[in-house]
Nucleic acid binder design. Structure first.
Lengths: 160, 160
DNA sequence: TTCACTGCAAACCTTTTGCAATTCT
DNA sequence: AGAATTGCAAAAGGTTTGCAGTGAA
């Protein structure tokens, strides 16, 4: 593992990924990425459209759906189950996550006041959670766990 | 806490709750409860309608939506976030849950093979999970957690 | 130039709402 | 009888699909 600092920009990272997959960098994808980059809120396709419209950019809702799908496929955004909305994946704690192979995890803190959504990238909690779940699941039920999704609802400091 | 055994039937329990709330026991509510009682699958309104139609019972989809809402309000069913479907709440481990006030919890094991959905009523995991989450949430983010929803996807023994 | 992507239109599916008719209690 | 509940029709959302036109590489 090199100590090379990675680009701190979510957008740059996303563009790199798209490019490396032979996908095209279009105006619409740039716009969507730019909005995702500047908010902690998870957004629906219509909310994304409204934001872009507000800043004078024309884009079709259908395109946003397709871009969301594309970004989700390449693990550049998360889908929040309780709302169906989309949020950019966090960068920055990749080393911690790599170790636990939870780079693309699905643990969220959702503020019911402002909609702010934070990822929980915490190896500690992941370890605990998975160990317990697997111990629990394997013995009584025999379930083989292949994925998980955890959403915590509450109020962020600003909204309390 | 009396050692009084409670009725083992989900349907009886549900009817009691409805009655105690001044709600009416209609043919349609009985039908929906009966189907929920006999499956571990979480069902959508349309799936419920199909099952009832298959057994020769006529019911409007709108009524099913309203009945689902009613049952959810009175904590007689759970809503699975990843699918929007509804599953009966488990009875039977109430004592364990009472202690932790997790009578109506939101932890599921979902089989991606057959759709079977089990509740995770486990005080141990609940304790661990909440302690960790709260410790984690309070210090760095200041989030006040008011609810949570955990879904574990995988394969049940039969589907592996 | 080529192929991915977008926009438009339309279809589709799910969920909600209003209101008159029904049916529990 | 009186109020809650249902069914029907229609509206309202949200999401997907097909296809011709556009634009990135």
């Amino acid at each position: 593992m090199t100590a090379t600092p990675f680009t701190s920009s979510f957008v740059d990272h996303a563009l790199e990924v798209l490019k490396s997959q032979g996908l095209r960098i279009t105006r619409q994808r740039r716009l969507v990425l730019a909005v995702l980059d500047t908010t902690d809120e998870a957004l629906s396709a219509y909310e994304m459209k409204d934001r872009l419209t507000a800043q004078g950019e024309a884009i079709d809702t259908v395109s946003i759906y397709r871009i969301f799908d594309c970004l989700e496929t390449h693990q550049l955004v998360h889908r929040v189950l309780s709302s169906g909305k989309v949020r950019r994946c966090a960068l920055g704690d990749e080393t911690a996550c790599d170790k636990h192979q939870h780079h693309h995890c699905h643990h969220f803190l959702i503020c019911q006041g402002c909609g702010r959504t934070d990822e929980l990238h915490c190896p500690e909690i992941l370890d605990q959670l998975e160990a317990r779940l697997e111990a629990l699941a394997v013995s009584p039920s025999g379930f083989r766990i292949t994925g998980h999704h955890l959403e915590l609802m509450g109020l962020c400091p600003a909204c309390q």
